[in-house]
Design a binder for these strands. Structure first.
Lengths: 195, 195
DNA sequence: CGTCTATTTGAATGTACTCAAAAGCGGTGG
DNA sequence: CCACCGCTTTTGAGTACATTCAAATAGACG
């Protein structure tokens, strides 16, 4: 299978597409390959693409004044990655996005995306659904962040994302959970001795 | 001005609508008035409407096993309120939404919304944009939650939402920030003595 | 094998919570 | 209009959660 077909397959999980729709979508995206540790998005630089991940793993993070990193999102195959605010308003990005392993994406820029919204209403519906689902997921994360302590959030994380847990360095998980790597290590220790 | 026109005005801030579009939209919504403390959404009951707030204030909150409330969102004039997950998948709601003052909303149910998406593509675009913006806002809140301590989050809150700060009881602000009302009181005290 | 980075461990400190009680405030009824 | 009731906010003390700093150990990679 051509990898672009994976994108079409992904979209048709949510909306129906005609043959012409599919062709228009296919021709609007361009492939890009990232090496491990390569940056897809950079703080301070406009994020000009919305990215669909064919294969690989990305991590989006914010770097504060003290130089500390705060992980906003991990993303794997079939997920999307951009700085939506930067992309939407064409402003400088607030985050970095880095490949944690060799990663292949398909990219679309804003003019082409707007054109596609116009020409393929089903594609706009797809993005409406996508953003809706993303918003629902974000809400759950906020709820977890405000009501659970570090250990509870960690247990929740490994339950929700067992796959991530395997291959993502612990310090990034800590920065996603909003705790220090040292504290995460302590949590793991106390979980290990408890059993 | 008819209050339903306020909704149209709101939508046309983001997308253009024809006369027919406007009529179709207007006829799809029905008004509802809430008394102070009345519930718009109830945990365990399907959320069958998406709600546009004409005038008033709502608070969305989750109640955990211990009976503690965790505020997910405050919403005022021109905002939208629903349990999106419950609405979208037609499942039991996870949250409550309560009027903090007399509040007037316009409601649309899912069949009518889907119909409207189909008949008025601009309306679907509007919701795509709305969800996109909501997602961007949520991202910022997550970032604040994982990188700031209680005092910093409080200062951020009163900076972002000075109006809310005036009329919302402190204990609800605490539950929004993810801290206890007791601790928020201490934060306020130490801010007051600092100046 | 050596180097660089990630993880663990320990101790001291700061941040935030719980419990209990007092003070403040708003609404209601007499 | 005042007195009372119920709820919110404040205060204080003790405890738990989480961070910082420093150093040791373990892993990854050339």
């Amino acid at each position: 299978m051509e990898s672009i077909d994976q994108l079409i397959k992904h979209i048709t999980k949510y909306v129906e597409l005609s043959k012409e729709d599919k062709e228009k979508i296919k021709s609007s995206f361009t492939p890009r390959t990232l090496r491990k540790r390569e940056l897809l998005i950079q703080q301070g630089v406009a994020c000009v693409h919305e990215n669909y991940i064919v294969q690989g793993t990305l991590r989006a993070f914010y770097v504060d004044d003290k130089g500390d990193e705060h992980t906003l999102q991990f993303a794997v195959d079939d997920w999307w990655m951009s700085d939506l605010e930067s992309f939407f308003y064409q402003t400088a990005a607030n985050i970095y996005a880095e490949a944690l392993e060799p990663t292949q994406v398909f990219q679309i820029n804003k003019p082409d995306l707007d054109k596609l919204y116009h020409e393929v209403p089903m594609f706009e519906r797809f993005f409406r659904i996508l953003h809706q689902r993303a918003y629902i997921a974000q809400n759950k994360r906020i709820l977890n962040a405000i009501r659970m302590n570090g250990m509870e959030r960690y247990l929740q994380f490994i339950e929700n994302y067992p796959a991530f847990h395997q291959k993502i360095p612990q310090k990034y998980i800590a920065s996603y959970l909003g705790i220090t790597p040292v504290f995460l290590s302590q949590i793991r220790k106390s979980l290990a001795t408890k059993n």
